[in-house]
Write a protein that binds this DNA or RNA. Structure first.
Lengths: 210, 210
DNA sequence: ATAAAAGTTAACTATATGGTCAAGACCTAG
DNA sequence: CTAGGTCTTGACCATATAGTTAACTTTTAT
C-alpha cells in the first residue's frame, strides 16, 4: 500500500515529465535530426527549463534512446501477429491494415525510425536488428508454406514483406510530399481507408489472391 | 579561344573541387544529417583543409543546397519519360526499371532526398515542390486515360505512382535494414534484376496487365 | 616579365550548445 | 513538525563549430 502509493505519486510525476519530454523530443528529432535538435529546443517545446530535461534524462543521447525504444515497442505492439491459420489473404490484409493505420496515427515514430535506418542505424542496438531479421524471416517462412501449399502465387516472400513495408510506411515518412502532391493541408480520415483499400487490392492481386 | 581556355583551365579546378566536396558532403549529410555534418568532417573526407571548402562554397547551407539540387537534377534525368504511346504496361515497366536502377546506383541521393522530405522539406524550394506536383499529376492523367480506354484496371493512378515510388526507393533508403535482414554485407548485381522482376510482376498484376 | 586573378591554408573569433552545479522549493513518511 | 528525499531552475563552464581574415602560392593573360 505504502509502496504502491509511493510509486503512484512519486513515480507519476517522473513518468509524466518523461512522457512530455519524449513527445517534444520526437518532434524536434524529426524536424531537426539528432544533432540538430538541441536540448534547449526540446525544453522549449516541452515548456520546461533545460536543466529539468537533463534531470530526467542524463543526456541528449538518452532522450533519443528512449524515443527510439518507445518507437520500436509501439511498432511491435501495433503490428498484430500473423498465424499459419490466417491463410495468405487474411495475413496480408491484417498486415497492411495495421501498418497503414500506424503510419497515419504515429507518423513521427515512423519518421524517426526511417531516419535512423537511413543514417545507418548507428543508434540501434544489435538485438533490435537481429530481432527484425528474425521477425521478417519467420513471416517469410509462413508465406513460403502457403506458396508451397498452392494457396498463393509463387512470389519472393521477403520482397513481398519489403513491398508491404515500404508502401505503407511511405504515407508517414513522405507525408509532406504526398500532401503537396495531393494539394492538401492534412490527411483526412477517409484517406486511411482509401489507402488500405488500394494497397490491399493491389498487393492481393499481385499475389493472385483476388 | 582565349576565353575557352580560361573556362577549361580555371573552371576545371573549380568544378573538380566542388565535385569532390559535394561527394564528401553527400556522405556526411547521409551519415550525420545536415546539422551533424561539420564542415571539418566534410573537409577531412574530401582531403582538403576546411578553409578551402569555405572558399568554394560560401557556407555549409550552400553545400547542402548544391547537393540537393544535384540530386533533384539526377532524379529528373534518370527517370525516363513516359508517353501516351507507351501504353500502361511499358510505362510501368520503364518507370520501375529506371527507379530501381537509380536506387541501387545512387543510394546516397535517394537518402538525402528522403531525409529532406521526412524533415518537412525545409530546404526544398517551392518550385521544386510545385514541379513534382505537376509531374505526378501529369503522369497520373496518362494512367487515367489508359484506364478510361480500358487498357488497364481502374486503380487510383496517384496512389499507383506512390506505390511505385515507395517500393523502389525503399531499396536505397532502407539499405541498412534490408541487408541486415538478408544477412548480407552488400547488394550484388543480381539483386537489381531480381527486384525489378519482382516489383514489375507484382505491380503489373495489380493493374491487371499480366 | 609582370600584374592581376584564382587558389590555398593556418590562425583566429564569436557563438551555440551539452552538460554541471548548487541553492532552494516542495513533498512525504514517521 | 521535521528530516530525507525528490524536484526545479538560474548560473555557469568547457568545448565544438561556422565562418573570417590575411598572408602566401600558383596560374593565367598579355
Amino acid at each position: 500500500m505504502k509502496n504502491n502509493k509511493e510509486i503512484k505519486k512519486t513515480g507519476n510525476i517522473r513518468i509524466q515529465s518523461q512522457h512530455k519530454i519524449m513527445i517534444a523530443a520526437s518532434t524536434e528529432f524529426v524536424l531537426q535530426g539528432f544533432k540538430g535538435a538541441t536540448v534547449q529546443s526540446i525544453a522549449d517545446r516541452a515548456g520546461l527549463p533545460k536543466a529539468n530535461i537533463l534531470y530526467y534524462f542524463k543526456n541528449k543521447e538518452n532522450i533519443y534512446h528512449a524515443v527510439l525504444e518507445h518507437t520500436l515497442q509501439m511498432w511491435d505492439e501495433g503490428i498484430g501477429d500473423i498465424t499459419p491459420e490466417d491463410g495468405p489473404k487474411a495475413a496480408i490484409e491484417k498486415f497492411i491494415d495495421a501498418k497503414v493505420r500506424m503510419s497515419f496515427k504515429h507518423p513521427e515514430s515512423s519518421k524517426i525510425y526511417a531516419m535512423e535506418i537511413i543514417q545507418g542505424a548507428q543508434h540501434l542496438k544489435d538485438f533490435a536488428r537481429t530481432y527484425q531479421r528474425k521477425w521478417v524471416r519467420e513471416k517469410a517462412q509462413l508465406f513460403q508454406q502457403w506458396i508451397d501449399n498452392g494457396e498463393m502465387r509463387d512470389v519472393d516472400p521477403i520482397h513481398l514483406i519489403f513491398l508491404i513495408w515500404s508502401s505503407t510506411q511511405h504515407y508517414a515518412d513522405f507525408e509532406t510530399q504526398i500532401l503537396t502532391i495531393m494539394n492538401r493541408a492534412d490527411y483526412e480520415d477517409e484517406d486511411v481507408e482509401h489507402v488500405i483499400a488500394f494497397l490491399t487490392d493491389m498487393i492481393l492481386r499481385g499475389c493472385g489472391l483476388n
